[in-house]
Amino acid sequence: MSPAEQAQITQSTRNGWLLSAPALVLLTIAAVGPLAIVVAYSFMPQGDFNGVAWGFSLEAWQGILFTKDVFDGTLAWADANLTIFWRSVKLSMLTTVFTFVVGFPTSWFIATRAPKARALWLFLITIPFWTNLLIRTFAINEIIRKEGLLNTILLKLHIISKPLEMIYTDTAVFIGMTYVYLPLMVLPLFASLDRFDMRLLEAAYDLYASPFQVLRKVIVPIVKPGIIAGSILVFVPSLGAYVTPRLLGGGKNMMIGNFIELQFGQGRNWPLGASLSVTLLFIVTGALLVYVRHANRETTHGQ
């Protein structure tokens, strides 16, 4: 390489960095800044009335798993916190599985329509996004509450003799989250099914695969990227869900999101809220790592 060429390459590399610098600085501040503040808060002592005080303290981290007795200062397992964690993870997983069970046939249906009809169906799927989440959640409340639409119909039809207790239960939260996050499963699944070569179905069918084997051995492995993407898109926001558990779970069926909000609000324990937020981040990261690794192992399994 001639010195002139070398100089030209060096120059264009430098220009590239200079041009991207403003965006890089902005992105770094926006992405790392808030997170750094949250992490810092989690290592600070509680402020007198609100916020945090200067200093270093591990109390907030201790508070995730243990509660300190007010009188003698002994530590005991914080059962309430663990219940909230477990409920969050359990409901998020159920939501993910159920949105897949409902979303897969839906996406399949859309992907197998004529191109024109496909656009219409996708449009219909996205309509709920046009309305505010709060309003949609109230609508669900209206359907499943004690004197709600569902109970009224079932009572009128004499299918049940007394109203079903659905509102303010885990089931209500689960129904609400499935409804809210279903499009997030359908859209990535559709994107992969849309690219799926339907002629492979005939090939598999011709090679003695039963309809179930066609699904398991051909369709699922090929659209797996879509399944992974959809699962992540549903699981991650489910875990941090706030509005749905608040409105449909009532005060007592809290999820991590509500618990964190409680610390920054009425609880006035910002450090604990911060440490809980960081913990949520770890749970999400951990769950994703396990999930993606497992999903990839299955692909290479047969080889």
């Binding site: 070569d197 002629r199 492979l200 090939a203 051909v218 492995p221 090929i222 047969g302």
Partner: peptide, 8 residues
């Protein structure tokens, strides 16, 4: 179109 399985 051959219709070979791309994941295998």
């Amino acid at each position: 179109s051959y219709a070979l399985f791309p994941h295998l």
